[in-house]
Design a protein around this nucleic acid. Structure first.
Lengths: 97, 97
DNA sequence: AAATCTTACGGGTGACGTAACGATC
DNA sequence: GATCGTTACGTCACCCGTAAGATTT
């Protein structure tokens, strides 16, 4: 599992559409479909119900969505933190461990 | 940035060695070196100081390490949660946020 | 010389886009 | 017929391992 899987899944879940998600991610629809399929296969869990006309979260998918969103937000925060820390340039202290 | 970058970086930081980290990850040393280099390049931040005989965290690296460890733990937890949810079939609790 | 990290180089896996198919409205 | 998701397939990027190079002890 990689962050890409989470990014794609979250986009689909939020847009409730593979097509819209692909547009938002600037990738092809088939790419999104494949990655979400791989994620579900790896987890062994069906996250989305592709019914007629609609893409809906399963109950497991809803649970996983919150986690995935939280993880992505955390990753983004981590980048900002370390970027800011390097710009700030304050501590030259090398903290052990 | 992908979870792989975080896994590799955390292993190196924790082992304080690229060689040990590679062993632990069951990949080659050069692979670890390359991925950590790519991560630093993407962040625009030097995370590790490769001095003679030692690999030490920079202050920015120490900050990022905590975040990375937390993210990886979160990701692992997410997998467990959704796996358990699908097995249990009866949603235990939906932990808010 | 031994140990360690980096860099160069090839190969194989996989992510991606195009296109064709099936299904639903 | 139009829209949407899936699948097949060819391409290309990139991850990885091997090997050579640089540095230190």
């Amino acid at each position: 599992m990689e962050l890409r899987h989470l990014r794609y899944f979250c986009a689909v879940a939020e847009e409730q559409s593979f097509t819209s998600a692909a547009r938002r991610l600037h990738v092809s629809q088939s790419g999104v479909s494949g990655q979400v399929r791989d994620l579900e296969r790896e987890l062994g869990v069906t996250l989305l119900r592709r019914n007629q006309r609609e893409v809906m979260l399963t109950s497991e998918g809803a649970v996983f969505l919150r986690e995935a969103q939280s993880i992505l937000a955390h990753a983004q925060r981590a980048v900002e933190i370390v970027t800011r820390a390097s710009q700030g340039q304050y501590g030259k202290l090398t903290i052990g461990l």
